[in-house]
């Protein structure tokens, strides 16, 4: 029978979207749910996501944010090189670090760097950025198919799923393998919509693969109000309310940048 799993990443302290996902994914037939990391950043009250994840027993891959906060590092290791990107990354990291309880930091420190699944004989590798580097940006328009095939071969996977960039995309590769970026549930996909995105991966008994991206509605107005109450930057709140990215934009390739308005 078909095996169906839900995969999400980039929670960014958006506990309201996380709660919505945990109701939505089982309704769509997902037998299991996996998280690809970056639990904190950007949003309010970072401790609120942990009880939800533990209660639902969600396996979590460690993201760069989780690695940084968990190991008391000086910055988020997001991999930005532009001064303006790093300015906002700093605000976000300092707030998240200061407001995460010690026991949650320890929990994140001990998360695995990858999870491997076998779904109807298909080898699935779950990671954060890429299988070789936790904070590698794999963008839809700057990652060749040949490179993705090489990753599948080097890491002995039929399907690789990552997050990190916060934008969802999928490529069926010429050699029959797949690469999926499951997107982020922490902030919208720079598309002018307030919903956030996750992936449903279905593999039938003939090992045929179906990938669906699910737009997830949640109470974004409430999140925005919580962010304001926490004095988070108005730029972050604007993204939640409008669906357009306002910060950490310089790292985007041209086509991804051109799709947004800033």
């Amino acid at each position: 029978m078909t095996e169906r799993v839900a995969i999400f990443g980039g929670v960014y302290s958006n506990h309201l979207a996380l709660a919505a996902l945990l109701e939505d994914a089982p309704r769509r037939g997902a037998a299991r749910i996996f998280c690809l990391g970056d639990l904190g950043a950007f949003g309010p009250h970072p401790d609120e996501v942990f009880p939800l994840l533990r209660e639902a027993q969600i396996p979590v891959v460690q993201g760069n944010y989780d690695n940084s906060v968990g190991n008391n590092l000086a910055d988020c290791q997001c991999g930005y090189t532009d001064a303006k990107d790093n300015y906002f990354a700093r605000l976000s990291y300092d707030y998240t670090f200061a407001n995460t309880a010690p026991e949650n930091k320890t929990w994140m420190r001990d998360l695995p760097g990858e999870i491997r699944l076998n779904l109807n004989g298909v080898r699935v590798l779950l990671c954060h950025g890429s299988p070789r580097r936790m904070n590698e940006f794999l963008w839809e328009t700057t990652t060749s198919l040949a490179f993705l095939e090489r990753l599948c071969q080097d890491f002995e996977a039929d399907i690789i799923v990552g997050t990190h960039t916060g934008l969802h995309w999928h490529r069926a590769l010429p050699n029959g393998k797949h690469f999926i970026n499951c997107g982020a549930i922490g902030r919208p996909a720079n598309d002018g919509r307030t919903c956030v995105w996750y992936a449903l991966l279905s593999i039938d008994e003939k090992a045929s693969v179906t990938v669906e991206f699910i737009p997830l509605e949640y109470d974004h107005a409430r999140l925005a109000s919580e962010m304001r109450a926490e004095n988070l930057p108005p730029e972050f709140v604007a993204t939640i309310e409008t669906g357009w990215w306002t910060t950490c934009l310089e790292v985007l390739p041209m086509k991804e940048r051109a799709r947004g308005v800033f």
Partner: peptide
């Protein structure tokens, strides 16, 4: 000097 081994290396 603060390089973090958990970030992984390239094959």
């Amino acid at each position: 000097s603060e390089a973090n081994p958990a970030l992984g290396t390239t094959p």
